[in-house]
């Protein structure tokens, strides 16, 4: 059962069963600390994929400190979404919230595609992710692109690698992916890449040696 309360700080918060989706004392300070704890990862990324909306305080803090970052939120709980949008109408106004269950459709979502086509990082909001841990675990794996299936999904999104979508990738399904996966491609298959992409791929391969 989902209930709305007031924290000791006077801010409104959400509780599901016995679990609070944010601090019952001071959710704003908690959100500041959460952002500070992820600062290194956030700073380097152009896009942020946030697993869990919770009560929205951490999103509001992210938008305040990093207004230019592209953010996409993954949240399936409709009540959470309504609560957060009511509490933070401006901060969440233009932030896409993805609730899709099918992972193919998640990756195909235009907002998600936009984030995946540049440097991004995945941040987990633990209290809200705990509401549906299995879904978020699989989702994170898909978004990382480190399994054969998830890489295939992402190849279609990356303009440089779209041509490899149908190419056989000689890799074990259960083995985490690394950049040696493209080793078997001959120069002909790389020929259509732009100069920049060609040289970047070659440079990356040198770094794995």
């Amino acid at each position: 059962m989902m209930e709305e309360f007031y924290a000791k700080s006077g801010d409104r918060i959400l509780r599901i069963g016995e679990k609070y989706l944010c601090s019952a004392v001071d959710p704003r300070t908690e959100a500041e600390r959460w952002v500070a704890g992820h600062r290194a990862k956030v700073h380097k990324a152009k896009g942020l994929l946030i697993l869990g909306l919770g009560a929205g305080y951490h999103i509001a803090q992210l938008r305040k400190q990093y207004p230019s970052k592209k953010i996409v939120i993954f949240e399936q709980n409709e009540r959470c979404i309504q609560f957060a949008e009511r509490l933070f109408p401006i901060e969440l106004f233009d932030v896409p919230i993805v609730s899709e269950n099918l992972f193919d459709k998640v990756i195909a979502d235009p907002a998600v595609k936009a984030v995946l086509s540049s440097r991004y990082t995945i941040l987990r909001h633990a209290p809200s992710a705990a509401l549906n841990e299995p879904w978020y675990d699989v989702l994170e794996k898909e978004l990382l692109g480190r399994s054969l299936t998830s890489l295939r999904s992402q190849l279609g999104v990356q303009s440089t690698f779209k041509a490899f979508e149908g190419t056989p990738l000689l890799w074990g399904e259960s083995t985490p992916i690394d950049w040696r996966i493209f080793d078997h491609l001959n120069d002909g298959q790389l020929a259509e890449r732009s100069d920049l992409d060609f040289f970047v791929l070659k440079a990356l391969r040198e770094l794995i040696k």
């Binding site: 692109g145 992916i177 440079a203």
Partner: peptide, 16 residues
């Protein structure tokens, strides 16, 4: 490139 908890294309975009 090597850490599996990092997005696969992260280093690609960094170098690019």
């Amino acid at each position: 490139l090597g850490e599996y908890q990092r997005p696969f294309f992260d280093s690609y975009y960094l170098v690019k």
